[in-house]
């Protein structure tokens, strides 16, 4: 039986609460992740995508993209990188990654576990980021970094995917 608010409001209160909860999860991970300094700039494990992965079985495209956008804007503002070039990269790459993961879930959920979906997401994320960086710097030599980032995405994607497999209650 649905809660009373499900009947009367356009957006249910429950969904609102879920949205806020997942957004806070993602923002928290984003903030903590930005504090960890890795030896190479630009490189982050992208742990926030675990939140996206875990949401995939339960929510629709708009909901997941919404959580992602809120996460990027609020998270970057918290860390103090809002509208910096790095933020543009995160926004572009993250949007592409989120969409690709939703598509991968839709077509491959019977076969792939979160590992495969995470790998696709990480790969697309880094691909789009490098291409965007090429446009921002306006020099083709940035593409030299492409193989490095693509191979790196395999590592981070594997880590995220296995963690999501471990965390998510949903069996795929």
């Amino acid at each position: 039986m649905p809660l009373p608010d499900d009947k009367f409001s356009i957006i249910s209160l429950r969904k609102c609460a879920h949205f806020a909860l997942f957004a806070v999860f993602a923002i928290g991970i984003h903030a903590v992740e930005s504090l960890v300094t890795l030896p190479i700039p630009w490189v982050r494990p992208g742990l926030t995508h675990i939140v996206t992965l875990v949401m995939l079985p339960f929510y629709g495209t708009k909901f997941i993209l919404g959580v992602f956008l809120v996460r990027v804007f609020v998270g970057s503002a918290l860390v103090g990188k809002l509208f910096s070039p790095g933020f543009l990269l995160a926004l572009g790459g993250g949007t592409a990654a989120t969409i690709s993961m939703i598509v991968a879930w839709r077509f491959g959920k019977t076969r792939l576990s979160f590992l495969g979906i995470s790998l696709i997401g990480a790969w697309v994320h880094n691909l789009v980021q490098v291409i965007l960086a090429t446009f921002i710097i306006q020099h083709l030599s940035v593409l030299v970094l492409l193989p490095f980032f693509l191979f790196l995405s395999l590592f981070t994607g594997t880590i995220n995917g296995l963690l999501a497999n471990k965390i998510s209650p949903e069996r795929t």
């Binding site: 076969r111 576990s113 696709i120 790969w123 492409l146 693509l150």
Partner: peptide
């Protein structure tokens, strides 16, 4: 950790594509 055969296939495919770049 629920890893399927298709996950490994995706990993190999993406690694190949990365190698091509």
């Amino acid at each position: 950790l629920r890893v399927t055969r298709w996950d490994i296939a995706v990993l190999c495919a993406l690694a190949t594509l990365a190698g091509l770049t």
